[in-house]
Design a protein around this nucleic acid. Sequence first.
DNA 1: CTAGCCTTGACG
DNA 2: CGTCAAGGCTAG
Length: 951
Amino acid sequence: MSEQNGPSEGPGPGPGSDSSWWPSTQTWKSSAAASSSTSSTPTSTSVSVSCSASSSSTSSSTSINSSTTCCPSSCIGVSCTMSPSRSTETGKNVSVTTINVPPNQEMHDAKGVCKYLGGQNGVTVSVVSTSVLGCGNANAVPTSGICTNTGPHSIGIGIGGILAANAADIDDPEDSDGEISKIDFRGVNLRSKKKRDVSGNQNGEKIGDGEANGDGGGCCDDNSQQQPERPMSWEGELSDQEMSSNTITNQDHNEETSMEGVQVCSTSPGPMEQKFPIKSEPDFRSSPGFSIGSFHDGGLPMTHNQQLQQQQQQQRGIENLEQTQQSDLPLLVGKLLGGYNNSTPNHSPVLNPRHHLTKHSHTRSQVPSPDSAIHSAYSVFSSPTQSPHAARHSALGAGSPIPSSSLSLSRHSFNNSTSSLSLSLSHSLSRNNSDASSSCYSYGSLSPPTHSPVQQPRHPHSHSQHHQHQVPQGSPLHLPASSAVAAHHYSSSSVPGSELSSDGHPVAEDQEDCRLPSAPSGISTRQQLINSPCPICGDKISGFHYGIFSCESCKGFFKRTVQNRKNYVCLRGAGCPVTVATRKKCPACRFDKCLNMGMKLEAIREDRTRGGRSTYQCTYTLPNLVGSPAGMTSEKLTTAGNCSPAPAGSEHHYSVRYHSNHSYKMQVVPQLLQDIMDVEHLWHYNDNDRISGTVECSSNDSNNVDTNSRRGETASPTDSTLTGASDQHSTNGNTTNNSNSQIASNSNGNSAQHPDFLSNLCNIADHRLYKIVKWCKSLPLFKNISIDDQICLLINSWCELLLFSCCFRSMSTPGEIRVSLGKSITLEQARQLGLATCIERMLTFTNNLRRLRVDQYEYVAMKVIVLLTSDTSELKEPEKVRASQEKALQALQQYTIARYPEMPAKFGELLLRIPDLQRTCQAGKELLSAKRAEGEGSSFNLLMELLRGDH
DNA sequence: CTAGCCTTGACG
DNA sequence: CGTCAAGGCTAG
């Protein structure tokens, strides 16, 4: 890893951040290298336990010790693992994200407990203790994940908890917050300071990002006053609380940040998407259900009828499943889904192998390795040739940052019509393009944005949106969002000059075609354009940079951001105003705006070659507004038609460039996708959950009544993840026996020895399961599926879902997988722990996500697609499931086409990653089973953490 | 990190 | 040689 050590890259491309997608060489290389190297390592199941064991035992550098070190109970959570920063190989600091144990931990735990006790209904302390004991006990343990709930109460947890949690979910904001505050956000984007190499290597740079941010957010240097500076990450800005909370103990080494604190939004590649609204989730702990857990009670967000039906169905389904399947998971899932209650003996789900799962796994296993992923990220961007369409339209590409708020915006109904596909037209331009075809600039007035000629809203339909300030100052070129308008396009050549009229002014031809309000063609001169305000910040335009006319500062900012692969996260969830005065405050939003306004990543030269003409292809597709496939309304289409792009062969395409965020979103994001996104917050795992989970687990286990009790069959997803792996594989695969046997083994082995471990498992499993089920039940497409099938689907996909979530979250930290809050693991560390196979695949998968610049919308859509995989023979209504999946696929396709016209193959590429995910999952499960067998607690815990959901 | 200014180099 | 966009340098 050359310069960038894997970890170090941290700042790197976050999922959200653009940089992530950036073709960046180094990062990729490093990662690639790593992966490749690793690849050599046996992917197969057998992980060398020995290694791990030793390593684990030794806290060695990597120390991932978890629980033990910390409080046992709490273990998982915060405390655990901290690995001091370790400088990685390369000289650079790599930051491995180390996790420090927060001093607070104890607090947390205690707190958690307290909450738990107090908060929860009936749960008594005694219970807790019991459960704890239980966990500790060999018996209970294994199951823990699942078991967690097991106690009589346990059930409650599972289902009850969920139910209880239900919508309402009792959140304790406060608690949460408090907890959150304690959390270490180091990871969050702090940009490591980087020194700049004289040479200006990018490599080194990554490191550099951050310091400023430090906690406060270095990003905005200046701003501090106005706002405390916040660390940025693509994910979003941290809330104030978070900010305050962040205590970062950084280790010197780490400069990078992990995004942990940020909730997630996981990464989205695009800055836009990145900003996922951060919601803290309700703590289910607080929910009575949890403690007590009668699953009966809990109500997921469902109507009563639904609930009733579900319950009925569930029971039936569950029973069926039980009969048919023997995996633990199903039961648990079933319970969760349906509230099915079974009091079965508790076994640890985790331990139990699930056969069913295997089936898929097998299939999946066959899937080609992700290795390909390694290839370059470059490919996409770097070579123009590859993507003819490469150019990102400002409009389209620009993903307008979608502020969290945006979610609330009214949605358009989008037509799913595929027609949209056709919309994207692209040219590929060569760097030297002579062809510079026409570009359309809307000249209109030089006047300030408000005055922009374009003012007419281009989109009649645009809903009222509240725009966020972000609106540009509206240079004629770039219409203010509010004004929505047309923009100029250039067609092909990146070289502005080409576009210019003889005068040297950009040709406005298109405008007319496009009906842009802007001034008549020819009227404005380039100079005029230059005189207009920078569409990003409103400053004076200095020229045509990276695809748009912008000021020198934004040009430089964009360059630095891309070259250095910065991952900025808006702590506020996006939507920060970007003006001359505020542009320094939130680089995340500024970068988003750069993209939104049309700056092209492709314009940044990987090789940093100076001079000459740009080779990047400028492809302009029809304006999304008009044509966006996804959501366009007919009207819009019509409009588009007017603007009709140049004839297919023609080189010139004109499109409206500017889209307000709002309109953008509406146009590009299919309703279904938006609906899916709206429930995404249910997925995220937050600290509170964790903590609470811990408590719960402990409490519940011992008794375990039933809940989870699965006849040993069920495993919580988490567990299953672990175990499941084995199961699916068949590695372990014992069906029936497994659960018991496993449990036994566990109990005997490590589990007994590591109460913490067990409790952790319980916590994780419970929480994740809870979250996942809750999420599933809220999914638009999932609700209509019968309970039986819901259970089946969840059983078959939970592992993929968890891993996907983890990998997506890790997009911003090349070379490392973000395990949990602040914690991350590098391949090297994984090797020491004997987890190389799994981590390697995860890194590879993550690299692919980064390369593809998977954004939040794509991520959520893919999760649904994965969830709705109907390739199982166990489905009762496969057609229905298939139909649902098809809808999700359609929505994703529409979105990718509309949002990333320059990446026409993105949809297909995204789907091609699913097999990799499945393989990765298989590897993870195998590892888990192996670890479990060997009893390596720490490694096992680590895996659990890996599988854990987002925070 | 920011942003203004400088250098580079393909084109015309 | 001028233009112009991309990268580099560096004071702040």
